[in-house]
Amino acid sequence: MAEVKIQAESRSEFGKGAARRIRRDNKVPAVLYGHGSDPVHITLPGHDTMLALKTANALLLIEVAGGESHLALPKQVQRDPLKGTIEHVDLVIVKRGEKVQVEVAVHLEGEAVSDALVVTEHTTVLVEAEATHLPEQITVSIEGLEPGAQIHASDLQLPSGTTLAVEPETLIVNVTAAPTAEQVDAELSDAEAEAGIEKDEPAEEPVAAAAE
Rank of each mutant, 00 (worst) to 15 (best):
R79V: 14
D80K: 08
P81K: 04
P81I: 08
L82F: 15
L82D: 04
L82R: 11
K83M: 03
G84V: 07
T85F: 07
T85Y: 07
I86V: 14
I86S: 07
E87G: 07
E87T: 14
E87Q: 15
E87R: 12
H88K: 07
D90Q: 10
D90Y: 01
L91A: 10
V92E: 04
I93Y: 00
I93N: 02
I93A: 08
V94H: 05
V94N: 03
V94T: 00
K95M: 05
R96Y: 08
R96N: 00
R96E: 13
G97V: 06
G97C: 09
G97N: 00
G97K: 02
E98L: 00
E98N: 05
K99P: 04
K99F: 14
V100S: 04
Q101V: 11
V102W: 02
V102S: 07
E103M: 12
E103C: 09
E103L: 12
V104E: 03
V104F: 06
A105E: 12
V106G: 04
H107R: 14
H107N: 11
H107S: 03
H107E: 11
L108P: 08
L108M: 03
E109F: 07
G110Q: 02
G110S: 00
E111P: 04
E111Q: 14
E111Y: 10
A112W: 06
A112G: 10
A112K: 06
V113R: 00
S114D: 12
S114G: 04
S114Y: 05
S114R: 11
D115H: 12
A116I: 05
L117K: 05
V118Q: 06
V119S: 12
V119H: 04
T120C: 00
T120R: 05
T120M: 03
H122T: 08
H122C: 07
H122R: 13
H122P: 07
T123V: 12
T123D: 11
T123R: 14
T124V: 15
T124Y: 09
V125K: 09
V125L: 01
